[in-house]
Nucleic acid binder design. Structure first.
Lengths: 209, 209, 209, 209
DNA sequence: AATGAATGAGTCTTCATTCAT
DNA sequence: GATGAATGAAGACTCATTCAT
């Protein structure tokens, strides 16, 4: 009996989080109102307050849930044979999650990109597993001589993650134009690893600082 | 006939834009209220509506003004002798503007990085001069063989600009930690041009796609 | 499920309509403010918006309710044996309603007599039962040869109704002077049916058109 | 010099009254705003306050001007040979004025028909010349035996005037449908004098009270 | 636990009026 | 006298939160 009601409670909570994520992703925090979430989740407005202390708390719950859902994926990633293939696998996993949990991910990305987020520490905390995965790959790359060693790995990890986010935002802003979700993993890895410089016989290597 | 000089009117308008930019930068659009802006600008609430149709219009005005102030700087940039130095000069100019007009720039960057901005087209339009400047530099780079030709220049320009924005946000989020404003230009150019790969004798060229 | 009974909700709605009618009747639409209505109805301001979409909607509700309350009376009217007595009975019923629902009726009449009412179609629609009742009486009168047949019955019905309204307004404007409410039914019928011409032996029948 | 400026002042005053009348007629007192009137009159907003103490005062000015313009016409009316023709001439004159000064007249009629007008005494005062003209005609009619003597002439005058107003309102509300302005004089006189009863051999004269 | 009506502080916006020029 | 920018009180409406049922 307790089990059932606990499961039922959890189901309501999940429905609330999904509904809230959809609204927050679509309209942002302020433009979203509790009524709409309640209707979308199929519960009464007051019920929300049995599960979350406030609208802000609900938003935090969405962030946390989003991070949680993402993290689950990264634990079981095949280690690539090269930095490039490992990063590509990770990015591809991220894109998959993004497509499956678009609402949660949009909220996460938006919050991460807000210059004055009260939730930044939460974001960082929840982002940590992903950053750690990236850092692990890069660390191995450094050891193999595939990744530059003149910049701290954590910073590089942050930059790679940021590049991914950048491409997501560009995808959303361009309304599905360039880049498409499918090309994002390659694009991110290519951009991050190779940069914009021409390769092969370099005309003037001296100008490099 | 207007008894207050056009200059005086313009001064009020500027005060309003500055005050609004500060508030919007600090708290975001929704959390900012018209009263605070009026007080900060030293005018009565109603006066704002002599200059802007609505809070949204005022926000648009802030965006436009921010873009305008940035653009002024780009017209008088020394053309660098290399892609690297030209980009660095441009980024440095951008950072300078950013520091001088922090409020306006924060609003611009935040809006540009919001995944569902109603103002995205405005942003793009106003960002165009900057993107064009970047594209011009990259174009020249391509001709000189310094920039890869396998990806469209406009996309590369967008990526460079995005990388800059990414670093700004990281700077703000980390509360002035890494990266500092001063190192951003080099960091952006280095990241964008060289990527994360190790240079010099490449161990395994075969893995490159 | 609604914990407050539907009856209780309806009671609040009625209180709101009564309070609103009183205010609108007393001060007109624009001079009435939502706060006053809320206070008069003994609810919080926000509660009004649980029942009506806007101040205009509330006004429309008052009109509709006023019309509704009037109409109820007309269904159970004894058919007079003559046009005169039937009209008098109808007018008397109208006066009775008017006295019992003075606020609602004042709002209705005022709106009906405003030369540029946005609610005229609503008024007409709601007034239809009354106009129909009048028209029915006049139609019977025409058949009995008591009512002139050279003018369309609907126009005559409108004129009779208008004459009634005219007398109400005159009553209100004169602050209860002439005419008193009691004499209005006879006055209206007499004015409408007999007109101002002298009766009996007509001195000059030739001047009649 | 004084003459010229006085004339000029008067011209501005007239322009203001015309503009205000147009606005008040079109939108009513509350929905009209000072700005629109100023623009329509081609003066600055502040200038209005050199001519009128307040918006209310301006409204009063419009009423007064409207009444004034109407009254001028009634002084030079040809006395008809019969009550009917005299009333018809008066009504025709009124319709003419109404058409020429539609804005002013609409404001006057609307105000007269408002059940709680603060300006009712002004209306009555300004309406007096018209009512007196009607009363004069009816008085003569009574003496000639053309008008019933069982009801006070002032009340009859008020009823005739009210009937006219009723038809105007009906004309405006029906958006120029029935009745047309042209048929109003006959309609008013016919309605007022003859009433709705059938003429000629009356079937049951006994039912008359 | 669930419900949804009630609440009222908070917000944007309007606009008649003032007054320095 | 004319101007129109500035003013700020007032008002409609929103919505997160509470709480009786």
């Amino acid at each position: 009996m307790v089990r059932i009601s606990a499961a039922a409670k959890d189901a309501v909570r999940q429905r609330l989080l999904e509904a809230a994520a959809a609204q927050f992703a679509h309209q942002g925090f302020d433009a979203t109102n509790i009524d709409d979430i309640a209707v979308a989740a199929g519960v009464a407005k007051g019920t929300i307050y049995n599960y979350f202390e406030s609208k802000e708390d609900l938003f935090g719950g969405v962030l946390a849930e989003g991070a949680l859902r993402t993290v689950h994926r990264y634990s079981s990633l095949p280690h690539g044979t090269s930095t490039r293939s490992a990063l590509r696998a990770l990015a591809a996993a991220d894109v998959t999650v993004l497509q499956e949990e678009e609402a949660f991910m949009k909220v996460l990305v938006a919050e991460a990109m807000t210059p004055r987020s009260r939730n930044y520490s939460l974001i960082l905390e929840r982002l940590a597993p992903f950053l750690d995965a990236v850092a692990g790959i890069l660390e191995a790359g450094v050891r193999r001589g595939e990744v530059r060693r003149d910049r701290p790995v954590p910073q590089l990890a942050l930059l790679f993650t940021g590049t991914l986010a950048l491409l997501y935002i560009q995808h959303w802003q361009s309304d599905g134009g360039w880049p498409t979700m499918d090309e994002i993993p390659d694009l991110a890895v290519d951009t991050f690893l190779d940069g914009g410089r021409a390769r092969g016989p370099q005309p003037r290597r001296r100008t490099r600082r």
